[in-house]
Design a protein around this nucleic acid. Structure first.
Length: 461
RNA sequence: GGCGGGUUGGCGGAGAGGUUACGCAGCGGAUUGCAAAUCCGUGUAGACCGGUUCGAUUCCGGUACCCGCCUCCA
């Protein structure tokens, strides 16, 4: 059995990956809050852990991996959008408008992530479908003394979980010293976080033992991962910015509610995507969406390639230059592999690189060294590149240039005699300006439409 | 203030305690009427200062700078 090694944030070490049950390897990735188009930063964990999903399927078999990625469809930004639509006169109840907004956003998300070549997870639970499970879990935490109700809120009692802070390497006292926590009168301790909060008439809400309200953000991942993957599962992944407080809180909730389980055994965190050296973030306002790039003509496969050129554990700067280089490389490889059946298996160097903590940059380096196109295609596909369904963008434009080729050849033959090459060069320049690649050799003239081919510029030649 | 990550040749970016990373660009050559494409060849890299070692860019310690988390965020 191929050994996969992964950097486990929980232990801060690169460890051999040993699944609880090789017949059902289980992975959970924190998914998007569906209030708007996914920005480019949202796409990094999707692509990175898609490669992990593919690798796990390769090693354990396609039917032996369960990959869960949630949709957070309870969120104040969604509520705000729906409320704004309602106030603008949109028909339907607030709940219906919220549903419509999240349905719309999920559709966008799927389209955008599909364009990046990400496989759909095995399951994509929506938070609103698990409210009952969350309420039960919260009630259980209250029962066990790990949570308390105050004024319609339910709060997790951080001091009741001695391991709190282990994942992110901080202590409760240090964090309080940092004094960046929301102080609220109903909290026993400033670090306590919300499991349930009351909803007024303008907000979506569900009936609960604590009145009509809605869940806090962290509880959904604990409830859904437990429902779909059990009290112990293999991998929990997400962006490094979720390490604290989101994942810390998930661990606290899950381990206190299900002390019989271990929750997630391997924690994987990807570093942030940057743009011009800064993190892409909503508060900085420097973010753009995946759709923005796709609309600008940058193929999803190119975005994917750029992502995978940097190890997931390092910050990655998005630049136009990288995209251009990636596009050139992919064009070359696609031309090389056109019409070729992939080899039965990927190159061992590529598999070895991926098994070494998902070294996608190393894997791409190995791809450059593969001489056999069939092996190249098979190996690239393990990374989700050179897939059959993604390559239309790289196909040469259809054009019949045989008349022009004949004309150029004729001019050239004449020029050989007269030694006046000006007419040949004039036609050649015009062709190049129209995006045609001109190849002249002793054997003859060949014209190939290139990436920037523009048939309109050929008129009159 | 607390916690964490980073710093490699013109650019991007890996691995390995001692031998060419790789890609792109550049340069030289083959080829071409000239080019393009292709092929061949080509790099004075490892932030700084110490330490361990026969030997460190690779391990350890410190310094500087950059970045992230601690607040919605992937």
């Amino acid at each position: 059995m191929t050994e996969i090694r992964l950097t486990n944030t929980r232990t801060r070490k690169k460890e051999a990956f040993v699944p609880i049950d090789p017949a059902n390897v289980r992975m959970y990735l924190c998914g998007p809050t569906v209030y708007d188009r996914a920005h480019l930063g949202n796409a990094r964990p999707v692509v990175v852990f898609d490669v992990l999903f593919r690798l796990l399927r390769h090693v354990y078999g396609p039917d032996h991996v369960t990959y869960v990625r949630n949709f957070t469809d309870v969120d104040d930004k969604i509520n705000a959008t729906a409320l704004a639509r309602k106030e603008a006169g949109a028909p339907g109840t607030l709940e219906e408008l919220i549903r419509a907004r999240t349905e719309e956003t999920i559709g966008w998300y799927h389209a955008d992530m599909d364009a990046l070549g990400a496989l759909r997870p095995t399951q994509e639970p929506r938070a609103t479908d698990y409210i009952g499970a969350m309420i039960s879990m919260i009630a259980d935490l209250v029962e066990k003394g790990h949570a308390y109700a105050r004024d319609g809120h339910v709060l997790f009692r951080v001091r009741s979980y001695t391991e709190y802070g282990a994942l992110s390497g901080r202590s409760v006292d240090d964090m309080i010293a940092g004094a960046r926590v929301e102080v609220a009168p109903f909290k026993e301790d400033p670090m306590d976080f919300v499991l349930w909060k009351p909803s007024d008439a303008d907000l979506p809400g569900w009936d609960s033992p604590w009145g009509r309200g809605r869940p806090g953000w962290h509880i959904e991942c604990s409830a859904m991962s437990h429902a779909l993957l059990g009290a112990s599962f293999d991998i929990h992944a997400g962006g490094i910015d979720l390490q604290f407080p989101h994942h810390e809180n998930e661990i606290a909730q899950s381990c206190c509610a299900h002390p019989e389980g271990q929750f997630a055994r391997y924690w994987l965190h990807n570093e942030m995507l940057q743009v011009e050296g800064k993190k892409m973030s909503k508060s900085l306002g420097n973010f753009f969406t995946v759709r923005d790039l796709l609309d600008r003509g940058i193929p999803g496969e190119v975005i994917r390639f750029v992502f995978l050129q940097t190890h997931y554990g390092k910050p990655m700067d998005w630049t136009a230059e990288k995209a251009a280089q990636a596009e050139a490389t992919l064009r070359k490889w696609r031309a090389l592999g056109a019409g070729i059946d992939p080899a039965p298996s990927a190159a061992p160097e590529v598999i070895a690189a991926l098994c070494d903590d998902l070294n996608t940059a190393g894997a791409i380096a190995a791809l450059h060294r593969i001489a056999d196109p069939a092996v190249l295609v098979a190996s690239a596909r393990l990374l989700g590149l050179l897939e059959a369904g993604m390559g239309d963008w790289a196909a040469a434009p259809e054009a019949d240039l045989s008349d022009l080729a004949a004309k150029l050849a004729d001019l050239r033959v004449k020029a050989m005699d007269t030694k006046d090459f000006a007419p040949v060069d004039a036609l050649k320049s015009a062709l190049v300006a129209a995006g045609v690649e001109v190849r002249m050799s002793k054997a003859g003239v060949e014209l190939l439409p290139g990436p920037n081919f523009d048939a309109a510029k050929l008129e009159g030649l």
